[in-house]
Design a protein around this nucleic acid. Structure first.
Lengths: 239, 239
DNA sequence: GAGTGGTCTAGACCACGGT
DNA sequence: CCGTGGTCTAGACCACTCC
């Protein structure tokens, strides 16, 4: 995978940028110069630059060139992307926090009208309904409320839910193609108050995820309720 | 702009997808068929598909084809992207809420060590420091705390801050290239409690934005503190 | 093995920025 | 005007999926 032309160019350029090699002019060399240096095609060079741009390191201006973005320790921190598809791991996975999981509820049910309206699952299909608390550094930090389409996921058990559902999916050949996410701040419910270490806070962050397999079918609806002051979400917006 | 080949193909395919024209097979026609139909190059067709994928409508699988993602009213809602570069407008701009602005504070200052550490501005440079409350539907919903590099932005006044700073920038030729964002949930400060309609809630959402001009220079650091239960942020993650 | 998307090459012309 | 990135074409070969 890493031996693709554009990826090699990307990695070399990235290293040079972070080492400050282009910081005098605040510009990347022009495309023709990079094509000559790497003895490759324009396609590969442009794809490498596009990857750098997606990461927030550079910005292309038509008619002028490829500009480097200023980067400080603070703005660098913003580059730790939220691109992890896994469940809790997406929350500041880079810290590699140790955590335990407590399964609060585990059962199967049929989707009714009310559940259908917010999960987007069809009425009548069977789902696994799971509630788990994630204990991070000894703190009850996250309440995960999952609904998995039972027809599109391998068989689940409470024991699997205590370990890693996503690893279980991976082992059984379920491929996650796309996740749509929504973030909001909400007043804590009684369930949140009971399960999470909110201290004096009476609100939670709610990360709603809808996941699709590689056949385009939704197999998951999840709400992750998390305590304040602990988790960050990063995003990059390009013009 | 809209007459580019790939953009035309994109719009046509998008319309067909939303009209359900491909929903039987849950697939897009293969690339060669689209090349033939639109009498264009593979480049244009692939670029159109890439745009659909970025939007969360399709997903390409090597060796199989381009799969349509299931879309329901709920998952469609997730497509309203957070791609607006403007300040408050990025918060659910599609609703076109009427709002008023109250300028709470407006002054110039020099960046000291403490301010430098969280804004990423260099110590010693002059900045505009502005605090504004956004009153949405009569509710004090957002507290914007802005710092603008005075050397890289056109002259600002309190009157401009009451209207639109971004329109003022645009008129004066400042181009916003990239915005890096961070989202978190925090315990409300005394300032938040004083300025926002928090009711019984004691937390806020905090959207931190660092904006760069098209020369790659940071010109803005902003914190937008917003009340719970009112704003949503969407995101799409692809594998 | 046939079908399909991913990568790559070698060109061409256009649109925009700066001089 | 020149230099630059953006779009586009016409091909080629590779990697993966499915039968």
């Amino acid at each position: 995978m890493g031996s693709q032309t554009f990826n090699e160019i990307y990695h070399i350029l990235r290293e040079r940028i972070l080492a400050g090699k282009y910081s005098v002019k605040m510009r990347l060399p022009i495309e023709d110069a990079l094509i000559a240096e790497f003895d490759s095609s324009r396609y590969a060079v442009r794809k490498a630059i596009a990857k750098l741009a997606k990461e927030g390191l550079v910005y292309s201006v038509k008619g002028r060139g490829v500009v480097l973005l200023e980067h400080s320790p603070q703005t660098q921190q913003f580059n730790l992307a939220l691109n992890n598809l896994n469940g809790l791991q997406s929350l500041n996975a880079e810290r590699h926090l140790d955590y335990q999981t407590e399964v609060v509820a585990f059962h199967q049910q049929i989707v009714d009208q009310a559940l259908s309206e917010h999960t987007a699952f069809e009425v009548g299909i069977p789902v696994y309904a799971i509630q788990r608390v994630r204990i991070v550094d000894g703190i009850r930090a996250v309440l995960d409320i999952n609904y998995f389409n039972a027809q599109r996921t391998p068989t689940l058990t409470a024991a699997i839910a205590k370990r890693s559902i996503y690893q279980h999916f991976k082992k059984n050949g379920l491929k996650i193609a796309v996740v749509k996410r929504m973030l909001r701040v909400e007043t804590a419910t009684e369930l949140d108050q009971a399960q999470l270490a909110l201290d004096d806070n009476n609100c939670i962050g709610n990360m709603i995820s809808i996941a699709f397999n590689d056949e385009g079918r939704q197999f998951e609806y999840t709400e992750s309720h998390f305590i304040p002051n602990k988790f960050n979400f990063n995003e990059l917006i390009r013009n």
